[in-house]
């Protein structure tokens, strides 16, 4: 399944988000506001429900007074940004060597079967997106996955089940619904 680029209206930034953007831009000398781009994109992505549409990226360009292409160039370079819509919960399973040695392949397969999707896809109910990630800096505690800002380590099929249930019960922070 390949999701086509869907036009999305710009997110309405909350007052906290605006203040946060103002604050991080303030970390840089006058005229160097472009330096804040990654932090601003993280903030705006969160406000926009976990992904950046072209329109939302144009908004980032306006915030920072730069050209839209400068935002696209950056957004496509860094792997954390979702440029297609994603589910409420995004599971990013580390697939790199050290985790593979302790069975990350099995966890990925287990998740694919359990959620009935392939890596890169989103469940039809829009709840879960499954992705793989490169080493997330938890190699001693693998297999592991990241969901939102949280790390889930020492994964087993049982722990994955628990996590999915916890998401369904709304106990885990997911993407904003916009």
């Amino acid at each position: 399944m390949k999701i086509e680029i869907t036009e999305q209206k710009r997110p309405v930034l909350s007052e906290e988000a605006k203040a946060e953007i103002q604050r991080v831009i303030g970390h840089y000398p006058e005229g160097r506001q472009k330096s804040a781009i990654l932090r601003v994109m993280h903030i705006v992505e969160e406000e926009a429900g976990g992904w950046l549409s072209p329109d939302t990226m144009d908004m980032v360009a306006e915030i920072l007074s730069i050209e839209p292409i400068e935002v696209y160039e950056v957004a496509t370079f860094y792997t954390m940004f979702n440029l297609q819509p994603v589910g409420k919960y995004v599971f990013e399973v580390c697939r790199t060597g050290p985790c593979m040695l302790v069975g990350s392949d099995n966890i990925i397969t287990y998740l694919e079967n359990k959620l009935n999707i392939k890596v890169g896809e989103t469940t039809t109910d829009g709840m879960f997106t499954l992705k793989t990630a490169e080493c997330l800096g938890a190699c001693g505690y693998g297999p592991m996955l990241q969901c939102g800002e949280e790390y889930h380590e020492y994964l087993t099929p049982e722990k994955v089940d628990e996590l999915i249930e916890a998401c369904r019960r709304g106990e885990i922070k997911g993407n904003k619904v916009v």
């Binding site: 991080v24 970390h27 330096s35 804040a36 990654l38 932090r39 994109m41 993280h42 950056v74 370079f77 860094y78 792997t79 954390m80 940004f81 990630a133 490169e134 080493c135």
Partner: peptide, 12 residues
Amino acid sequence: LDLSIAPGGGAY
């Protein structure tokens, strides 16, 4: 001294 922290975006 001013100190602040900035995040990357996923790029080794």
